[in-house]
Structure formats: structure tokens, C-alpha cells
Simulated scan of single mutants.
Amino acid sequence: MRAVGVGAGVFAGLAWLALSGCSSVGVREDAAAAAALRFEENLRGGRVLSGCDGLAPGTREELEETARSRCPPALEDLGLPSAREVRRVDVYGGQARVVLDSDTLFLSSFPDGWKVVAAGCEPRPESEVPYRCDLKGG
């Protein structure tokens, strides 16, 4: 009798883990989408410094090195497309692709949340490199 209870408990635990794993994907997708939209809203609203805060450290560093200026003016000068609506989110572990109505962003998960690693990305279906991005990290 006791073995059946343990087996049922193990089964219930595995079922809970399976279900929570599925829901955690949804939670990660929602969080990545929210970070992408927040980045877009910050740029659209003229809050470029907050947009810079939404960049992954390597992306911000690459932007500043390439532009030879601090992040806010460099990010503003890029003239990234302005997007408002999420079309699709794909999460693979700690990486995400968020396809918006007029832009595609790639994000990575950091301890303090999702950060943009690439933006202003356009698909290149005929190329070995699937996307060309105006903003990307090194």
C-alpha cells in the first residue's frame, strides 16, 4: 500500500514538473516580449538612456566603440525602426527572438532580466547569415 502512495506521489511530482516546465516557457516568452516592447517604447518616447539600460552589456559596449560616443546619442543616431506589436516570440533557453510588426530583436536572459543583444534586424532568407542587424553585440 505504501509503495503505491510513493509511486503516485512521484508520478504527481513528475506531472507537476512537466506542467511547470511548459508554463515557464510561456513566462519566459512573456518576459522577453515585455522587455522588447519596453525597449521600443523607451526609444519611441525619447527615453534613450532607459533604452541603453535595456541593452546587453556587450551590445552597449560594441555600440559605443563603433560610434565612438556614449550610448544615448549613439543609440538615437541609429534610427532603429519603431515597433509597437509583438507578432512572435521564440525562446531557446536563455536566448529569445521577438518578431515585432516592424523590427526583430534578439535578447538574452541576465540575472536582472531580458536584455537586447541585437535590434534593427531584417531577415535574409537567401543568405548564410539569417539576419542583418543594425545594432548587435560583439
Rank of each mutant, 00 (worst) to 15 (best):
S20K: 04
L75S: 15
G137H: 01
V129G: 00
E76N: 14
G13C: 02
P81E: 11
F110G: 05
E76L: 14
V25E: 10
F106M: 00
S108D: 14
D53F: 12
E61P: 06
D53A: 13
A83I: 05
S20T: 11
C52D: 07
P81A: 08
A96F: 06
G58M: 07
W16S: 14
L75F: 14
G13P: 00
T104V: 12
V99A: 11
P125V: 01
V129Q: 05
P123D: 08
G9T: 03
L14C: 12
G54F: 10
E76D: 14
V86E: 12
L49E: 15
R87K: 11
W16R: 06
L135F: 05
D77R: 02
A33C: 09
T59K: 05
L17G: 13
P111A: 02
Y92C: 08
G46N: 00
S109F: 11
T104Y: 14
E128V: 06
P72K: 04
R124F: 02
A8V: 12
E29H: 01
N42P: 10
V6F: 12
L55S: 06
G58A: 14
D101Y: 12
E40M: 08
S108T: 08
V116C: 09
C52R: 02
L107G: 04
R60H: 06
F39A: 07
T66P: 04
A67H: 09
V86N: 10
S69K: 13
L135I: 01
E64I: 05
T104R: 05
P72A: 04
T104S: 15
S109D: 14
A12K: 00
P123V: 11
A96V: 01
R2P: 07
P73L: 00
G138L: 03
G138N: 07
R124I: 02
V86K: 08
G45L: 05
L19F: 10
A15P: 06
F106E: 05
R44V: 13
K136Q: 14
S23E: 11
A83C: 02
A35G: 03
A119E: 06
S102T: 09
T66K: 13
V117N: 08
V98S: 05
W114Y: 08
D30E: 12
L107C: 02
E85I: 08
A96I: 00
G79K: 06
L55M: 03
G46V: 00
D77L: 03
L135K: 00
A8Q: 04
R132N: 04
P57N: 05
A15G: 08
R84T: 15
G21F: 09
E76W: 11
G58C: 07
E29I: 00
D53I: 01
E85H: 14
V25D: 10
V25G: 10
V10A: 06
R68L: 13
E65T: 11
P72Y: 13
E76K: 15
K115V: 00
F110H: 09
S23K: 11
G51T: 02
F39R: 03
C133D: 02
G21T: 00
G46I: 01
K115F: 05
L43I: 02
A56W: 09
G46D: 01
P73T: 04
L49T: 14
R132L: 07
V4H: 07
